[in-house]
Design a protein around this nucleic acid. Structure first.
Length: 456
RNA sequence: GUGGUUGUAGCUCAGCUGGUUAGAGCACCAGAUUGUGGUUCUGGGGGUCGUCGGUUCGAACCCGAUCAUCCACCCCA
């Protein structure tokens, strides 16, 4: 016996039952995206290595899956880089392509490359897998789907408002009834760093305070110290950890804190605007919450930052997003502002499974199975099947005259609701004998009557 | 990259301080039932106990290495 087959770490096979549920998530997201006027695009699974490298920080670079060149191009391997221990340079010399790490950076590349064919503001949605060479764990895979909606070419806050509405609409539609849309603004974070006199440590500060709910105030203070933030600055930041109350209360508290920072106040203004409009328009099931500690690692965000978490369940964020003023600038097209969101379909699936949010109706594709009794009967069944299919009834004919028991069991295992038996009697009278697998009832009638029965 | 967990039949797992022929449930196949599934009964096939090495008269069990897995950290959807 050969060794057991397997699939790479962090990847999965999806059985039909799972795919039906996954497709339900995808189609729900897609239909909402389309209602807001987003158009579909796709980009290749792989990008040129240089398109991706350096866009996600040092940590991100390490998590990019690279595709080894084959054939003659391996001759271009930079052996001297290898012997010098410069592995990054060496890998670049033998891996010209890499699997996409997210959908946003490839989208930026796409916009720059196809700018002449796009009408701005350009609103696109994209549902495709991405790959990360991370260690798998709960809710973390090496291959997973992102469902992104982004607008590029407008800095209007109208889109922030609509994107929050999309979060709310999609997740409410999927049956979530307790989830938080957390929102913050990078300008507020910049303002905080500025007020503390540590403007150049913005990233260090944001990364640290992002962990507040995980490691507590003491942990954050310790991390800030380790990252070289001055004691004076830490003291100044401290009150922010205890910010609570309604969104309005938190915002007004911060406004005082940030009164000397122009950028900080701008962030407050933007956020207040979005929050007030969102609440005036009304939301379904979401709790929309301003969270100063929300930072997110991606350093290309410049304005709004979003993150969605399902409550009462042990799982990281299920959606994310934000505004990036100059993403396309990385590829040479300046002055285009973008804002977008991303649904993590795999995590949404895991949470829905855990909370039992999937509708009860299970896998039913085939409605009718024709039992096969032999060559002549099979032909008659095929003729009838053809007629059923013309009426859009999904049906199939068992492929061989196997024992009745086996054929019935197949219908049962597949959860096919009706079994039709065509024997010599039925051929001569031009009728069908059909059995309702749920009730066990069986009767003989004309095909038309049978069709009426199953369609009712 | 760091720390920990678990690897026994297709799946979920039992297996005593190391003892002779390694078990159960589910699944699968056959029969009870030659045109009737889902329930029931009877029988059957299927495992070099993750892999390699060590200790021992003797290893699924103890030790080491290695691979895989899951969980946590980092980071993230």
């Amino acid at each position: 016996m050969s060794s057991k087959p397997s699939i790479p770490k962090g990847t999965r096979d999806f059985l039909p039952e799972t795919m039906v549920k996954r497709n339900y998530i995808f189609s729900t997201i897609k239909s909402v995206f389309e209602k807001y006027g987003f158009l579909p695009i796709e980009t290749p699974s792989m990008e040129n290595t240089e398109t991706l490298m350096g866009k996600y920080g040092d940590e991100g670079d390490k998590l990019i899956f690279r595709i080894l060149d084959s054939g003659d191009s391996v001759k271009n391997a930079d052996i001297s880089a290898l012997s010098e221990g410069n592995f990054g340079k060496f890998s670049n010399s033998i891996a010209g392509k890499a699997l996409r790490y997210d959908l946003t950076v490839p989208f930026a590349r796409f916009v720059v490359q196809n700018q002449n064919d796009l009408a701005f503001p350009f609103k696109r949605y994209q549902i495709q897998p991405v790959w990360r060479a991370d260690r798998p764990q709960k809710g973390r895979y090496r291959e997973f789907y992102q469902c992104d909606a982004d607008v590029v070419g407008s800095d209007s806050l109208l889109y922030e408002i609509e994107l929050v509405q999309i979060f709310d609409e999609v997740l409410s539609k999927l049956g979530f009834d307790d989830f938080s849309i957390k929102i913050n603004n990078r300008k507020i974070l910049s303002g905080i760093a500025e007020v503390c006199g540590e403007a150049d440590k913005l990233v260090a500060i944001t990364v640290a305070i992002d962990k507040l709910d995980k490691i507590g105030i003491d942990g954050v203070v310790k991390e800030l110290q380790e990252r070289g933030v001055s004691e004076q600055a830490i003291k100044k930041i401290n009150p922010l950890f205890n910010l609570n109350g309604s969104n309005e209360e938190k915002l007004s508290g911060l406004k005082t804190f940030l009164e000397l920072s122009e950028v900080g106040l701008k962030g407050i203004e933007e956020l207040s605007y979005v929050l007030s409009r969102v609440s005036e328009l009304g939301i379904q099931k979401a709790t929309v919450e301003f969270d100063v500690t929300l930072a997110r690692g991606l350093n290309y965000y410049t304005g709004a930052i979003f993150e969605v978490k399902a409550n009462n369940v042990q799982m990281g964020s299920i959606c994310g997003g934000g505004r990036y003023d100059d993403l396309t600038g990385l590829f040479g097209l300046k002055g285009l502002s973008g804002v977008g969101i991303s649904f993590g379909a795999d995590r949404i699936y895991d949470v829905m499974n855990e909370l039992k949010l999937f509708p009860a109706h299970t896998l039913t594709s085939t409605q009718v199975l024709f039992v096969n009794f032999g060559e002549a009967e099979q032909m008659q069944s095929l003729k009838l099947a053809k007629q059923l299919r013309l009426k859009n009834v999904a049906c199939e004919v068992y492929p061989s005259a196997a024992k009745m028991q086996k054929q019935m069991k197949y219908a049962n295992d597949r959860k096919i609701p009706f079994v039709v038996m065509i024997g010599s009697k039925e051929i001569s009278t031009n009728q069908v004998t059909f059995k309702n697998m749920d009730s066990g009832e069986q009767q003989t009638s004309s095909l038309d009557h049978f069709v009426q029965t199953i369609l009712s």
